[in-house]
């Protein structure tokens, strides 16, 4: 059987530190170096104060469920083996959200359920955040 290529990101310049951190196994978030607001997904300008200076903070790796879906159709061959696949919209402790696939049991998922973030490798170069019910 032919190996199916994973769907990989094409990073924007501003998001390169995000992807670099994930490869190191750490979830870091972009923060405005002037007003301190954390923003996600990464972008050039702080929408609060319009500063273009940023730094990166390590996320606590905890959050709660804001919403979710269970996907039963892959829409890309790379994800067929994962079906059914739960995707969780997470309210991170830092005040921004993350969309990530659920690992482990989804049994009692509900809005507000506590989750933990883990980092998972797609291949040698790319890693993504995944969530597990706490």
């Amino acid at each position: 059987m032919t190996e199916i290529e994973p769907v990989l990101p094409t990073p924007t310049r501003e998001a390169q530190p995000y992807w670099d951190s994930l490869r190191e196994g750490v979830l870091r978030l972009q923060r405005c170096a002037d007003c301190g607001q954390v923003r996600h997904y990464p972008r050039p300008m702080c929408p609060a104060c319009h500063s273009m200076a940023d730094d990166w903070v390590e996320a606590a790796g905890t959050g709660t469920v804001h919403s979710w879906t269970v996907s039963h159709h892959a829409f890309h061959p790379a994800f067929k083996r994962d079906l059914p696949q739960t995707f969780v919209t997470v309210d991170l402790a830092e005040g921004v959200r993350l969309l990530a696939p659920l690992r482990g049991d989804a049994g009692r998922i509900a809005i507000g359920s506590a989750v933990q973030i883990e980092i998972e490798a797609l291949d040698d170069d790319w890693s993504i955040p995944v969530v597990r019910l706490a």
Binding site: T10, A15, S71, F75, F79, D82, F87, L99, L122, W126
Partner: peptide
């Protein structure tokens, strides 16, 4: 979406 969500498998509007 293409950069941050599609690599996880969330690709189509339904998802």
């Amino acid at each position: 979406i293409g950069e941050f969500e599609m690599p996880m498998g969330a690709i189509a509007p339904a998802q």
